[in-house]
């Protein structure tokens, strides 16, 4: 069939309603996509941070250690300094310890005469889990506790994984609704042009030719709507990226440059939305029209 509007599809497939509905779907898809990528990025940042933090509590820090030769705190500090994978062990100052305990014990916890443990913070850079660290330190100073942050990392991973799943489900739902919208529009177009299509079919038009005419029109409208919806989502995404920047540690400028500082993976992925929408439009209209044509002899 020649490239002209013999079927009158410019009227039958309106250039208003379908693109507007697809634009709305694309807007939501852009948010869903951003959610997927952002949760993945935050998950990586938070997990790295949480799993790398070590907190070591040494009770009775001034008592002798297991050998009885040095104080427990000094023995643990010396051991940490020698252990591979442990970086930058720092004894928490009395002021910092006070600040930490203030919610429970008031502002001068260290003056209450309580037998408080000393706290050492460090970073774990080892390849394997720091589980064995606690056992080693417990032999030097029994009762020493090591909080590796792995539990928090696992919880963060579970949370962000769930967020990613939700965002993926949102994307799937949006794609399904977009396909349904295209199918309904195509069926409306078929109903409006039933006589025309029946005549053209009777004159020897192939099913593929008729479906291609519908698909071409539907794909153009869907792609236009998707481009519009994706562009409309950009300011919202920029604003969300600006809000999320402190958590992600991306250091996005809080000024007017935020609009142009969307994460690179998101900027690289957003153009896929109109392409995916166009693909959905083409495939859905092909299936819808070909199934309808099966009703003709």
């Amino acid at each position: 069939m020649a490239k002209r509007d013999d079927l009158g599809l410019r009227e039958a497939l309106s250039d208003r309603l379908l693109p507007m509905l697809v634009a709305a779907m694309s807007f939501l898809a852009a948010l869903g996509l951003a959610g997927t990528l952002a949760s993945a990025s935050l998950a990586r940042a938070w997990q790295n941070e949480a799993s790398a933090t070590l907190t070591i509590q040494v009770p009775q820090p001034n008592d002798p250690d297991a050998t009885g030769k040095v104080m427990r705190l000094a023995a643990v500090q010396a051991a940490l300094a020698q252990m591979p994978g442990v970086e930058n062990p720092q004894l928490m100052s009395q002021a910092d310890e006070n600040k930490l305990l203030t919610p429970w014990l008031g502002g001068n916890a260290t003056e209450l005469g309580l037998d408080l443990p000393s706290v050492i913070s460090a970073r774990w850079a080892g390849a394997s889990s720091p589980d064995a660290l606690g056992e080693s330190l417990d032999k030097i100073a029994p009762g020493t506790l090591v909080d590796a942050g792995a539990i928090w990392a696992a919880r963060v991973a579970a949370l962000t994984g769930s967020l990613q799943d939700c965002a993926a489900v949102v994307l799937l739902i949006v794609a399904a609704v977009a396909a349904a919208v295209v199918a309904v529009a195509a069926r409306a177009g078929l109903a409006q042009r039933r006589d025309t299509i029946t005549i053209v079919h009777g004159l020897g038009a192939l099913d593929g030719d008729i479906a291609a005419r519908f698909s071409s029109r539907a794909t153009v409208l869907v792609a236009a709507g998707a481009v519009g919806g994706t562009i409309a989502a950009l300011p919202v995404l920029a604003w969300l990226a600006w809000l999320a920047a402190p958590f992600a540690g991306t250091g996005i400028d809080a000024g007017g440059g935020a609009l142009f500082n969307l994460p690179l993976p998101l900027l690289a992925t957003l153009p896929i939305l109109p392409l995916a929408a166009a693909g959905i439009g083409w495939v859905t209209s092909q299936i819808t029209v070909r199934r309808w044509l099966r009703g003709l002899p």
Binding site: H201, G202, L203, G204, L206, D207
Partner: peptide
């Protein structure tokens, strides 16, 4: 269906 369409092209109605 394709053959039927091509056959219809040889029939004037």
């Amino acid at each position: 269906r394709r053959e039927a369409a091509l056959l219809r092209r040889r029939i004037g109605v």
